[in-house]
Design a protein around this nucleic acid. Structure first.
Lengths: 253, 253
DNA sequence: AAAAATCGCTAACAATTGTTAGAGAATCTC
DNA sequence: GAGATTCTCTAACAATTGTTAGCGATTTTT
Protein backbone atom coordinates (compact mmCIF):
# COMPACT_ATOMS: atom_id res chain seq x y z
CA UNK A 1 0.00 0.00 0.00
CA UNK A 2 2.11 2.91 -1.22
CA UNK A 3 1.40 6.21 0.45
CA UNK A 4 0.10 4.71 3.64
CA UNK A 5 2.82 6.31 5.68
CA UNK A 6 2.36 9.81 4.33
CA UNK A 7 5.57 11.42 3.25
CA UNK A 8 7.66 8.42 4.21
CA UNK A 9 7.98 7.44 0.60
CA UNK A 10 11.24 5.60 1.05
CA UNK A 11 9.99 3.36 3.80
CA UNK A 12 10.26 0.27 1.61
CA UNK A 13 13.97 0.66 1.15
CA UNK A 14 14.92 2.30 4.41
CA UNK A 15 16.62 0.06 6.99
CA UNK A 16 14.33 1.38 9.72
CA UNK A 17 11.23 0.92 7.58
CA UNK A 18 10.25 -2.33 9.31
CA UNK A 19 10.32 -0.58 12.67
CA UNK A 20 7.94 2.09 11.43
CA UNK A 21 5.65 -0.55 10.04
CA UNK A 22 5.74 -2.51 13.26
CA UNK A 23 5.07 0.46 15.50
CA UNK A 24 2.36 1.80 13.23
CA UNK A 25 0.33 -1.16 14.39
CA UNK A 26 0.78 -0.14 18.03
CA UNK A 27 0.17 3.59 17.88
CA UNK A 28 -1.13 6.22 15.55
CA UNK A 29 2.12 7.57 14.17
CA UNK A 30 1.82 10.86 12.31
CA UNK A 31 3.85 11.43 9.16
CA UNK A 32 6.13 13.52 11.37
CA UNK A 33 6.58 10.66 13.80
CA UNK A 34 7.43 8.39 10.91
CA UNK A 35 10.10 10.63 9.55
CA UNK A 36 11.49 11.21 13.02
CA UNK A 37 11.90 7.45 13.30
CA UNK A 38 13.38 7.09 9.84
CA UNK A 39 15.77 9.94 10.55
CA UNK A 40 17.10 8.35 13.72
CA UNK A 41 20.88 8.42 13.57
CA UNK A 42 22.13 4.87 13.32
CA UNK A 43 24.93 2.66 12.26
CA UNK A 44 24.59 -0.71 10.63
CA UNK A 45 26.61 -3.38 12.28
CA UNK A 46 26.98 -7.06 11.59
CA UNK A 47 27.66 -9.72 14.18
CA UNK A 48 29.17 -13.16 13.76
CA UNK A 49 27.40 -16.15 15.29
CA UNK A 50 27.37 -15.82 19.11
CA UNK A 51 28.42 -12.17 18.94
CA UNK A 52 27.43 -9.93 21.82
CA UNK A 53 24.73 -7.33 21.16
CA UNK A 54 24.50 -6.55 24.86
CA UNK A 55 26.91 -7.66 27.52
CA UNK A 56 25.94 -8.12 31.15
CA UNK A 57 27.34 -5.41 33.35
CA UNK A 58 27.88 -3.09 30.45
CA UNK A 59 26.37 0.37 30.48
CA UNK A 60 23.94 0.96 27.63
CA UNK A 61 25.02 3.80 25.40
CA UNK A 62 23.13 2.60 22.41
CA UNK A 63 20.37 0.32 21.43
CA UNK A 64 20.20 -2.43 18.83
CA UNK A 65 17.35 -3.01 16.43
CA UNK A 66 17.61 -6.37 14.69
CA UNK A 67 17.51 -6.09 10.92
CA UNK A 68 18.32 -9.66 9.97
CA UNK A 69 19.15 -12.85 11.80
CA UNK A 70 18.05 -13.95 15.26
CA UNK A 71 19.33 -13.16 18.73
CA UNK A 72 18.81 -14.58 22.20
CA UNK A 73 18.74 -13.16 25.69
CA UNK A 74 20.47 -15.14 28.42
CA UNK A 75 21.63 -15.18 32.00
CA UNK A 76 24.51 -17.27 33.28
CA UNK A 77 24.43 -18.89 36.73
CA UNK A 78 27.42 -18.86 39.03
CA UNK A 79 28.06 -22.53 38.26
CA UNK A 80 28.24 -21.78 34.54
CA UNK A 81 24.88 -23.15 33.49
CA UNK A 82 22.73 -20.81 31.50
CA UNK A 83 19.11 -20.04 30.81
CA UNK A 84 17.93 -18.50 27.59
CA UNK A 85 15.16 -16.06 28.43
CA UNK A 86 13.87 -15.00 25.05
CA UNK A 87 14.56 -15.16 21.37
CA UNK A 88 14.48 -12.13 19.13
CA UNK A 89 13.70 -11.80 15.47
CA UNK A 90 14.14 -9.02 12.93
CA UNK A 91 12.30 -5.72 13.49
CA UNK A 92 12.57 -6.12 17.27
CA UNK A 93 14.53 -3.93 19.62
CA UNK A 94 16.81 -6.10 21.63
CA UNK A 95 17.37 -3.79 24.59
CA UNK A 96 14.95 -0.91 24.86
CA UNK A 97 14.84 -1.76 28.55
CA UNK A 98 18.51 -1.32 29.20
CA UNK A 99 18.50 2.09 27.58
CA UNK A 100 16.61 3.32 30.58
CA UNK A 101 17.80 1.21 33.46
CA UNK A 102 21.36 1.92 32.41
CA UNK A 103 23.43 -1.14 33.16
CA UNK A 104 22.42 -4.48 31.67
CA UNK A 105 21.61 -7.32 34.06
CA UNK A 106 22.00 -9.93 31.33
CA UNK A 107 23.44 -10.49 27.87
CA UNK A 108 22.03 -10.67 24.38
CA UNK A 109 23.89 -12.59 21.70
CA UNK A 110 23.31 -13.29 18.07
CA UNK A 111 22.10 -16.75 17.22
CA UNK A 112 23.41 -16.76 13.70
CA UNK A 113 25.16 -14.21 11.54
CA UNK A 114 23.03 -11.12 11.94
CA UNK A 115 22.72 -7.45 11.27
CA UNK A 116 21.47 -4.66 13.49
CA UNK A 117 20.89 -0.92 13.42
CA UNK A 118 22.69 0.65 16.34
CA UNK A 119 20.91 3.73 17.61
CA UNK A 120 22.33 6.10 20.22
CA UNK A 121 20.41 5.87 23.47
CA UNK A 122 20.07 9.66 23.64
CA UNK A 123 18.25 9.86 20.34
CA UNK A 124 15.69 7.32 21.50
CA UNK A 125 15.17 9.05 24.84
CA UNK A 126 14.59 12.27 22.98
CA UNK A 127 11.89 10.73 20.81
CA UNK A 128 10.41 9.18 23.93
CA UNK A 129 10.18 12.58 25.58
CA UNK A 130 8.93 14.58 22.64
CA UNK A 131 6.67 12.25 20.72
CA UNK A 132 3.69 10.80 22.54
CA UNK A 133 2.79 8.34 19.82
CA UNK A 134 6.30 6.92 19.65
CA UNK A 135 6.41 6.81 23.42
CA UNK A 136 3.24 4.78 23.39
CA UNK A 137 4.67 2.38 20.86
CA UNK A 138 7.77 1.89 23.02
CA UNK A 139 5.58 1.32 26.04
CA UNK A 140 3.53 -1.32 24.26
CA UNK A 141 6.65 -2.98 22.90
CA UNK A 142 8.05 -3.22 26.41
CA UNK A 143 4.82 -4.58 27.84
CA UNK A 144 4.63 -7.26 25.18
CA UNK A 145 8.19 -8.25 25.99
CA UNK A 146 7.16 -8.58 29.62
CA UNK A 147 4.13 -10.66 28.67
CA UNK A 148 6.43 -13.01 26.79
CA UNK A 149 8.73 -13.31 29.82
CA UNK A 150 5.72 -14.22 31.95
CA UNK A 151 4.68 -16.90 29.53
CA UNK A 152 8.21 -18.29 29.61
CA UNK A 153 8.05 -18.56 33.39
CA UNK A 154 4.95 -20.70 32.90
CA UNK A 155 6.60 -22.68 30.14
CA UNK A 156 9.70 -23.73 32.01
CA UNK A 157 7.91 -23.90 35.35
CA UNK A 158 4.85 -25.98 34.69
CA UNK A 159 4.78 -27.61 31.31
CA UNK A 160 5.98 -31.09 30.39
CA UNK A 161 9.04 -31.42 28.22
CA UNK A 162 7.06 -32.03 25.05
CA UNK A 163 4.83 -29.07 25.79
CA UNK A 164 7.79 -26.80 26.49
CA UNK A 165 9.41 -27.46 23.17
CA UNK A 166 6.13 -27.36 21.27
CA UNK A 167 5.20 -24.07 22.92
CA UNK A 168 8.50 -22.47 22.06
CA UNK A 169 8.16 -23.54 18.44
CA UNK A 170 4.60 -22.23 18.29
CA UNK A 171 5.62 -18.89 19.70
CA UNK A 172 8.54 -18.43 17.40
CA UNK A 173 6.61 -19.46 14.31
CA UNK A 174 3.72 -17.18 15.20
CA UNK A 175 5.99 -14.22 15.69
CA UNK A 176 7.90 -14.95 12.51
CA UNK A 177 4.70 -15.24 10.55
CA UNK A 178 3.72 -11.78 11.76
CA UNK A 179 6.81 -10.21 10.24
CA UNK A 180 6.57 -12.28 7.10
CA UNK A 181 9.52 -14.56 7.82
CA UNK A 182 9.58 -17.96 6.15
CA UNK A 183 7.47 -19.36 3.34
CA UNK A 184 4.93 -22.18 3.14
CA UNK A 185 5.12 -22.57 6.90
CA UNK A 186 8.84 -23.23 6.75
CA UNK A 187 11.12 -21.06 8.90
CA UNK A 188 14.78 -20.56 9.43
CA UNK A 189 15.54 -22.19 12.78
CA UNK A 190 19.15 -21.65 13.80
CA UNK A 191 18.94 -22.99 17.38
CA UNK A 192 21.14 -25.93 18.18
CA UNK A 193 19.61 -28.57 20.43
CA UNK A 194 21.84 -27.34 23.21
CA UNK A 195 20.42 -23.83 22.87
CA UNK A 196 16.90 -25.19 22.68
CA UNK A 197 17.68 -27.05 25.89
CA UNK A 198 18.86 -23.87 27.59
CA UNK A 199 15.69 -22.12 26.48
CA UNK A 200 13.38 -24.81 27.82
CA UNK A 201 15.25 -25.62 31.00
CA UNK A 202 16.14 -29.16 29.98
CA UNK A 203 19.30 -31.06 29.07
CA UNK A 204 20.42 -31.45 25.46
CA UNK A 205 19.87 -35.21 25.63
CA UNK A 206 16.32 -34.84 26.80
CA UNK A 207 15.68 -32.13 24.24
CA UNK A 208 16.72 -34.57 21.58
CA UNK A 209 14.36 -37.24 22.94
CA UNK A 210 11.58 -34.68 22.99
CA UNK A 211 12.18 -33.55 19.43
CA UNK A 212 12.12 -37.17 18.29
CA UNK A 213 8.75 -37.58 19.95
CA UNK A 214 7.35 -34.48 18.23
CA UNK A 215 8.67 -35.74 14.91
CA UNK A 216 7.29 -39.21 15.45
CA UNK A 217 3.90 -37.67 16.21
CA UNK A 218 4.02 -35.99 12.81
CA UNK A 219 3.89 -32.51 14.28
CA UNK A 220 7.09 -30.97 12.99
CA UNK A 221 9.87 -31.34 10.50
CA UNK A 222 13.17 -30.07 11.82
CA UNK A 223 16.20 -30.65 9.67
CA UNK A 224 19.38 -28.76 9.19
CA UNK A 225 18.55 -25.27 10.31
CA UNK A 226 14.98 -25.10 9.18
CA UNK A 227 11.66 -25.81 10.83
CA UNK A 228 8.35 -26.74 9.26
CA UNK A 229 5.23 -27.14 11.31
CA UNK A 230 3.34 -30.05 9.79
CA UNK A 231 0.33 -30.06 12.10
CA UNK A 232 -0.52 -26.69 13.60
CA UNK A 233 -3.57 -27.71 15.60
CA UNK A 234 -1.69 -30.69 16.95
CA UNK A 235 1.36 -28.69 17.97
CA UNK A 236 -0.81 -26.02 19.60
CA UNK A 237 -2.60 -28.71 21.55
CA UNK A 238 0.58 -30.41 22.71
CA UNK A 239 2.21 -27.08 23.55
CA UNK A 240 -0.81 -25.65 25.36
CA UNK A 241 -0.32 -22.65 23.11
CA UNK A 242 -2.70 -19.70 23.20
CA UNK A 243 -1.25 -16.72 21.40
CA UNK A 244 -3.26 -14.19 23.41
CA UNK A 245 -0.18 -13.27 25.41
CA UNK A 246 1.61 -12.08 22.27
CA UNK A 247 -0.95 -9.26 22.06
CA UNK A 248 -0.69 -9.15 18.31
CA UNK A 249 -3.92 -7.21 18.09
CA UNK A 250 -3.02 -4.57 20.67
CA UNK A 251 -3.12 -0.99 19.63
CA UNK A 252 -3.45 2.36 21.37
CA UNK A 253 -5.06 4.02 18.37
CA UNK B 1 13.01 13.81 57.32
CA UNK B 2 10.09 16.19 57.50
CA UNK B 3 9.74 18.58 54.62
CA UNK B 4 11.68 16.43 52.19
CA UNK B 5 8.73 16.26 49.85
CA UNK B 6 8.08 20.00 49.76
CA UNK B 7 4.48 20.84 50.25
CA UNK B 8 3.43 17.23 50.64
CA UNK B 9 3.18 17.70 54.37
CA UNK B 10 0.61 14.98 54.85
CA UNK B 11 2.63 12.30 53.16
CA UNK B 12 3.14 10.34 56.34
CA UNK B 13 -0.54 9.77 56.84
CA UNK B 14 -1.73 9.69 53.27
CA UNK B 15 -2.56 6.25 51.86
CA UNK B 16 -0.59 7.04 48.70
CA UNK B 17 2.37 8.35 50.69
CA UNK B 18 4.35 5.12 50.27
CA UNK B 19 3.97 5.34 46.51
CA UNK B 20 5.39 8.86 46.49
CA UNK B 21 8.27 7.75 48.64
CA UNK B 22 8.95 4.76 46.40
CA UNK B 23 8.85 6.70 43.17
CA UNK B 24 10.91 9.52 44.60
CA UNK B 25 13.76 7.08 44.56
CA UNK B 26 13.26 6.45 40.83
CA UNK B 27 12.75 9.96 39.50
CA UNK B 28 13.10 13.54 40.57
CA UNK B 29 9.51 14.31 41.50
CA UNK B 30 8.74 17.98 41.94
CA UNK B 31 6.44 19.10 44.75
CA UNK B 32 3.81 19.42 42.07
CA UNK B 33 4.35 15.86 40.94
CA UNK B 34 4.03 14.71 44.52
CA UNK B 35 0.74 16.42 45.07
CA UNK B 36 -0.55 15.21 41.73
CA UNK B 37 0.16 11.67 42.93
CA UNK B 38 -1.35 12.24 46.34
CA UNK B 39 -4.40 13.79 44.74
CA UNK B 40 -5.02 10.81 42.49
CA UNK B 41 -8.64 9.82 42.83
CA UNK B 42 -8.84 6.45 44.48
CA UNK B 43 -10.95 4.10 46.50
CA UNK B 44 -9.73 1.88 49.26
CA UNK B 45 -10.78 -1.69 48.87
CA UNK B 46 -10.13 -4.77 50.96
CA UNK B 47 -9.85 -8.27 49.62
CA UNK B 48 -10.30 -11.57 51.42
CA UNK B 49 -7.67 -14.26 51.05
CA UNK B 50 -7.51 -15.43 47.40
CA UNK B 51 -9.58 -12.47 46.23
CA UNK B 52 -9.12 -11.33 42.64
CA UNK B 53 -7.34 -8.02 42.09
CA UNK B 54 -7.12 -8.68 38.37
CA UNK B 55 -8.95 -11.38 36.49
CA UNK B 56 -7.68 -12.90 33.27
CA UNK B 57 -9.66 -11.75 30.27
CA UNK B 58 -11.04 -8.75 32.08
CA UNK B 59 -10.59 -5.29 30.64
CA UNK B 60 -8.60 -2.99 32.89
CA UNK B 61 -10.58 0.05 33.92
CA UNK B 62 -8.60 0.70 37.04
CA UNK B 63 -5.37 -0.14 38.65
CA UNK B 64 -4.58 -1.50 42.10
CA UNK B 65 -1.82 -0.26 44.37
CA UNK B 66 -1.19 -2.63 47.27
CA UNK B 67 -1.40 -0.90 50.64
CA UNK B 68 -1.19 -3.90 52.93
CA UNK B 69 -0.97 -7.65 52.51
CA UNK B 70 0.63 -9.60 49.66
CA UNK B 71 -0.63 -10.62 46.24
CA UNK B 72 0.50 -13.04 43.55
CA UNK B 73 0.37 -13.14 39.78
CA UNK B 74 -0.57 -16.41 38.13
CA UNK B 75 -1.44 -18.16 34.94
CA UNK B 76 -3.53 -21.30 34.72
CA UNK B 77 -2.78 -24.01 32.17
CA UNK B 78 -5.50 -25.75 30.21
CA UNK B 79 -5.09 -28.87 32.36
CA UNK B 80 -5.70 -26.83 35.51
CA UNK B 81 -2.17 -26.63 36.81
CA UNK B 82 -0.91 -23.20 37.60
CA UNK B 83 2.29 -21.21 37.71
CA UNK B 84 2.77 -18.29 40.03
CA UNK B 85 4.78 -15.67 38.16
CA UNK B 86 5.51 -13.07 40.80
CA UNK B 87 4.66 -12.00 44.30
CA UNK B 88 3.72 -8.46 45.20
CA UNK B 89 4.16 -6.55 48.40
CA UNK B 90 2.78 -3.25 49.70
CA UNK B 91 3.61 -0.04 47.81
CA UNK B 92 3.68 -1.92 44.50
CA UNK B 93 1.32 -1.49 41.59
CA UNK B 94 -0.10 -4.80 40.71
CA UNK B 95 -1.09 -4.09 37.14
CA UNK B 96 0.38 -0.96 35.63
CA UNK B 97 0.94 -3.10 32.56
CA UNK B 98 -2.66 -4.02 31.99
CA UNK B 99 -3.73 -0.41 32.20
CA UNK B 100 -2.09 0.07 28.86
CA UNK B 101 -2.47 -3.23 27.07
CA UNK B 102 -6.12 -3.23 28.01
CA UNK B 103 -7.17 -6.79 28.60
CA UNK B 104 -5.34 -8.88 31.18
CA UNK B 105 -3.61 -12.04 30.01
CA UNK B 106 -3.39 -13.40 33.55
CA UNK B 107 -4.80 -12.98 37.05
CA UNK B 108 -3.59 -11.38 40.24
CA UNK B 109 -4.97 -12.59 43.56
CA UNK B 110 -4.44 -11.63 47.15
CA UNK B 111 -2.31 -14.00 49.17
CA UNK B 112 -3.79 -13.04 52.51
CA UNK B 113 -6.33 -10.48 53.61
CA UNK B 114 -5.16 -7.31 51.94
CA UNK B 115 -5.97 -3.75 51.15
CA UNK B 116 -5.46 -1.78 47.95
CA UNK B 117 -5.99 1.68 46.56
CA UNK B 118 -7.98 1.41 43.37
CA UNK B 119 -7.09 4.15 40.91
CA UNK B 120 -8.97 4.81 37.68
CA UNK B 121 -6.91 3.94 34.66
CA UNK B 122 -7.67 7.28 33.03
CA UNK B 123 -6.20 9.26 35.91
CA UNK B 124 -2.94 7.32 35.64
CA UNK B 125 -2.75 7.71 31.89
CA UNK B 126 -3.25 11.45 32.33
CA UNK B 127 -0.35 11.69 34.75
CA UNK B 128 1.70 9.57 32.39
CA UNK B 129 1.01 11.99 29.57
CA UNK B 130 1.48 15.24 31.43
CA UNK B 131 4.22 14.61 33.96
CA UNK B 132 7.58 13.47 32.65
CA UNK B 133 8.99 12.62 36.06
CA UNK B 134 6.04 10.42 36.94
CA UNK B 135 6.19 8.86 33.53
CA UNK B 136 9.81 8.01 34.14
CA UNK B 137 8.98 6.44 37.48
CA UNK B 138 6.29 4.29 35.86
CA UNK B 139 8.73 3.27 33.15
CA UNK B 140 11.36 2.23 35.68
CA UNK B 141 8.77 0.37 37.75
CA UNK B 142 7.71 -1.58 34.69
CA UNK B 143 11.27 -2.37 33.70
CA UNK B 144 12.08 -3.65 37.15
CA UNK B 145 9.00 -5.86 37.01
CA UNK B 146 10.30 -7.25 33.72
CA UNK B 147 13.75 -7.83 35.23
CA UNK B 148 12.12 -9.85 37.98
CA UNK B 149 10.19 -11.93 35.45
CA UNK B 150 13.44 -12.68 33.66
CA UNK B 151 15.08 -13.79 36.86
CA UNK B 152 12.13 -16.07 37.52
CA UNK B 153 12.59 -17.71 34.13
CA UNK B 154 16.13 -18.49 35.22
CA UNK B 155 14.97 -19.65 38.63
CA UNK B 156 12.42 -22.19 37.50
CA UNK B 157 14.37 -23.09 34.37
CA UNK B 158 17.85 -23.78 35.56
CA UNK B 159 18.21 -23.91 39.31
CA UNK B 160 18.03 -26.96 41.56
CA UNK B 161 15.06 -27.29 43.88
CA UNK B 162 16.95 -26.03 46.92
CA UNK B 163 18.27 -23.07 44.98
CA UNK B 164 14.82 -22.22 43.64
CA UNK B 165 13.25 -21.99 47.04
CA UNK B 166 16.26 -20.22 48.56
CA UNK B 167 16.28 -17.71 45.73
CA UNK B 168 12.62 -16.92 46.10
CA UNK B 169 13.04 -16.36 49.83
CA UNK B 170 16.05 -14.12 49.28
CA UNK B 171 14.19 -12.04 46.72
CA UNK B 172 11.13 -11.60 48.85
CA UNK B 173 13.10 -10.76 51.99
CA UNK B 174 15.25 -8.26 50.11
CA UNK B 175 12.24 -6.51 48.66
CA UNK B 176 10.45 -6.49 52.01
CA UNK B 177 13.48 -5.05 53.72
CA UNK B 178 13.49 -2.21 51.22
CA UNK B 179 9.99 -1.14 52.22
CA UNK B 180 10.63 -1.67 55.90
CA UNK B 181 8.51 -4.81 56.27
CA UNK B 182 9.36 -7.17 59.12
CA UNK B 183 11.65 -6.70 62.10
CA UNK B 184 14.87 -8.35 63.20
CA UNK B 185 15.02 -10.21 59.91
CA UNK B 186 11.63 -11.80 60.51
CA UNK B 187 8.96 -11.38 57.87
CA UNK B 188 5.34 -12.22 57.40
CA UNK B 189 5.27 -15.16 54.98
CA UNK B 190 1.74 -16.11 54.03
CA UNK B 191 2.53 -18.60 51.23
CA UNK B 192 1.33 -22.13 51.74
CA UNK B 193 3.67 -24.86 50.58
CA UNK B 194 1.35 -25.49 47.69
CA UNK B 195 1.69 -21.87 46.57
CA UNK B 196 5.42 -21.98 47.06
CA UNK B 197 5.40 -25.06 44.86
CA UNK B 198 3.45 -23.26 42.15
CA UNK B 199 5.92 -20.39 42.32
CA UNK B 200 8.99 -22.59 41.98
CA UNK B 201 7.60 -25.06 39.46
CA UNK B 202 7.72 -28.05 41.80
CA UNK B 203 5.19 -30.28 43.56
CA UNK B 204 4.04 -29.56 47.11
CA UNK B 205 5.65 -32.75 48.35
CA UNK B 206 9.00 -31.86 46.92
CA UNK B 207 8.67 -28.32 48.21
CA UNK B 208 8.24 -29.74 51.67
CA UNK B 209 11.32 -31.91 51.28
CA UNK B 210 13.27 -28.89 50.11
CA UNK B 211 12.17 -26.70 52.99
CA UNK B 212 13.21 -29.41 55.42
CA UNK B 213 16.63 -29.44 53.86
CA UNK B 214 16.99 -25.67 54.15
CA UNK B 215 15.92 -25.87 57.77
CA UNK B 216 18.27 -28.72 58.53
CA UNK B 217 21.09 -26.69 57.05
CA UNK B 218 20.28 -23.95 59.53
CA UNK B 219 19.48 -21.41 56.83
CA UNK B 220 15.90 -20.48 57.62
CA UNK B 221 13.22 -20.66 60.23
CA UNK B 222 9.78 -21.01 58.72
CA UNK B 223 6.93 -21.57 61.11
CA UNK B 224 3.31 -20.67 61.00
CA UNK B 225 3.15 -17.75 58.61
CA UNK B 226 6.46 -16.14 59.37
CA UNK B 227 9.93 -16.45 57.92
CA UNK B 228 13.25 -15.69 59.51
CA UNK B 229 16.48 -15.94 57.61
CA UNK B 230 19.05 -17.36 60.00
CA UNK B 231 22.04 -17.37 57.70
CA UNK B 232 21.97 -14.75 54.98
CA UNK B 233 25.31 -15.53 53.34
CA UNK B 234 24.43 -19.19 53.37
CA UNK B 235 21.00 -18.72 51.82
CA UNK B 236 22.39 -16.39 49.16
CA UNK B 237 25.00 -18.98 48.31
CA UNK B 238 22.53 -21.84 48.07
CA UNK B 239 20.06 -19.72 46.13
CA UNK B 240 22.62 -18.29 43.71
CA UNK B 241 21.15 -14.93 44.66
CA UNK B 242 22.57 -11.68 43.32
CA UNK B 243 20.22 -8.80 43.92
CA UNK B 244 21.51 -6.76 41.00
CA UNK B 245 18.44 -7.61 38.97
CA UNK B 246 16.18 -5.88 41.50
CA UNK B 247 17.79 -2.60 40.46
CA UNK B 248 17.31 -1.14 43.90
CA UNK B 249 19.80 1.59 43.18
CA UNK B 250 18.33 2.64 39.85
CA UNK B 251 17.33 6.22 39.41
CA UNK B 252 16.76 8.60 36.54
CA UNK B 253 17.64 11.65 38.58
C1' DA C 1 39.86 -31.93 -0.44
C1' DA C 2 41.35 -33.10 4.01
C1' DA C 3 41.28 -32.15 8.80
C1' DA C 4 39.04 -30.36 12.71
C1' DA C 5 35.29 -29.03 15.16
C1' DT C 6 30.59 -28.98 16.15
C1' DC C 7 26.27 -31.13 16.25
C1' DG C 8 22.73 -34.82 16.44
C1' DC C 9 21.71 -39.01 18.18
C1' DT C 10 21.61 -43.23 21.19
C1' DA C 11 22.21 -46.27 25.15
C1' DA C 12 22.72 -47.60 29.92
C1' DC C 13 22.43 -46.10 34.18
C1' DA C 14 21.76 -42.64 38.10
C1' DA C 15 19.48 -38.99 40.36
C1' DT C 16 15.86 -36.09 40.95
C1' DT C 17 11.25 -35.15 41.13
C1' DG C 18 6.37 -36.57 40.87
C1' DT C 19 2.29 -39.53 42.59
C1' DT C 20 -0.76 -41.34 45.75
C1' DA C 21 -2.28 -41.87 50.15
C1' DG C 22 -2.85 -40.97 54.73
C1' DA C 23 -1.80 -39.33 59.57
C1' DG C 24 -1.09 -35.52 62.61
C1' DA C 25 -0.86 -30.42 63.44
C1' DA C 26 -2.63 -26.03 62.99
C1' DT C 27 -6.16 -22.88 61.86
C1' DC C 28 -10.68 -21.34 61.02
C1' DT C 29 -15.74 -21.39 61.80
C1' DC C 30 -19.72 -21.59 64.34
C1' DG D 1 -14.48 -25.02 72.71
C1' DA D 2 -15.88 -28.53 69.39
C1' DG D 3 -16.06 -29.61 64.75
C1' DA D 4 -14.57 -28.85 60.21
C1' DT D 5 -11.22 -27.57 57.16
C1' DT D 6 -6.86 -26.67 55.57
C1' DC D 7 -2.13 -27.37 55.92
C1' DT D 8 2.24 -29.84 56.92
C1' DC D 9 4.68 -33.77 56.79
C1' DT D 10 6.03 -38.68 55.67
C1' DA D 11 6.52 -42.96 53.20
C1' DA D 12 6.68 -46.10 49.31
C1' DC D 13 6.77 -46.30 44.79
C1' DA D 14 6.67 -44.58 39.82
C1' DA D 15 7.94 -41.60 36.22
C1' DT D 16 10.63 -38.26 34.35
C1' DT D 17 14.78 -36.17 33.55
C1' DG D 18 19.83 -35.91 34.07
C1' DT D 19 24.65 -37.98 33.37
C1' DT D 20 28.27 -39.93 31.02
C1' DA D 21 30.15 -41.68 27.09
C1' DG D 22 30.71 -42.52 22.48
C1' DC D 23 29.71 -42.94 17.43
C1' DG D 24 28.31 -40.95 13.04
C1' DA D 25 26.89 -37.06 10.39
C1' DT D 26 27.35 -32.47 9.20
C1' DT D 27 29.54 -28.22 8.93
C1' DT D 28 33.45 -25.26 9.22
C1' DT D 29 38.19 -24.30 8.73
C1' DT D 30 42.53 -24.67 6.67
Amino acid sequence: MPGLWGNCALIEYHPLGPLVRRWSAFADLSPDDCSALLNLPHMRKTYPKEGYLVREGQEAVDCALLLSGYAFRQKILRDGRRQIISIHIPTEFVDLQNSVIGVADHSVQSLNHCEAAIIPRRALIELHEKRPAIRMAMWIETLIDAAIFREWVVNVGRRTSKARVAHLLCELATRLEKIGGGQDGEFEFPLTQEQLADATGMTPVHTNRTLQALRKAGLIQLTGRSLKILDWPGLREVGDFDEMYLHHAVSAK
